[in-house]
Simulated assay, not measured.
Amino acid sequence: MITYILQEKRFLFCLLLINFFGTLYGYYWYEGQLAATPDIFLVFVPDSPTASLFFTIFLLFFLFGKNIPYIEALAIITLFKYGTWAVVMNVLTLIVEGSIGWQGYMLIASHAGMAIQGILYAPFYKIKLRHIAFAAVWTLHNDIIDYVFAMMPAYSSLNKYMNEIGYFTFWLSIISIFIAYWLTQRNKPLN
Rank of each mutant, 00 (worst) to 15 (best):
P38I: 07
P189M: 12
H111E: 00
L158K: 08
P153D: 05
C14Q: 09
A36V: 14
E97Y: 09
Q117M: 13
F168C: 05
T169M: 11
G104H: 00
F61G: 08
D47V: 10
V96K: 15
P153E: 05
G65V: 02
P153G: 08
K128I: 04
C14F: 15
T78L: 09
Y27A: 03
F62T: 01
T169G: 06
I175L: 15
F149M: 11
D143Q: 09
Y28A: 04
G83N: 01
L16K: 12
F149H: 14
I108S: 00
S52N: 15
V45N: 00
T84Y: 07
G65K: 06
F62M: 05
P49V: 05
V91M: 13
M114C: 05
L92T: 08
G166I: 09
L172Q: 02
A154R: 15
L60A: 15
I18L: 15
C14Y: 14
Y4G: 07
I165L: 11
I179F: 04
A36G: 08
L34A: 03
N90I: 00
S99G: 07
G113L: 14
A51G: 10
I40H: 07
F149S: 00
E164V: 12
L34M: 14
W138A: 09
F54P: 01
L63G: 03
A51I: 03
W102Y: 11
Y161K: 10
Q185K: 11
V91F: 14
I144C: 09
F11R: 04
G104Y: 03
I95W: 13
I174Q: 02
L16W: 14
G65R: 06
I95T: 09
F44V: 01
F134C: 01
D39H: 15
I71G: 05
F20I: 14
I132C: 04
W102H: 06
L140N: 00
I77K: 02
G83F: 03
I127H: 01
Y147R: 03
R186F: 13
F64C: 10
V88G: 00
S173E: 05
V91C: 13
I145C: 08
S110E: 07
N159C: 05
F55W: 06
G118E: 01
I174R: 02
L53V: 07
K160V: 11
V96E: 14
V45E: 02
W138H: 09
A86R: 00
L15R: 03
S156Q: 08
F64R: 11
I57D: 01
R186D: 11
I71W: 07
T84A: 13
N191I: 12
F13H: 11
V88S: 00
V87L: 01
P46W: 06
I40R: 11
I144P: 02
F55H: 08
A86C: 02
Y125H: 08
I127G: 00
I100E: 01
P123Q: 04
S48E: 03
K188W: 05
T139W: 06
L17C: 14
A36H: 12
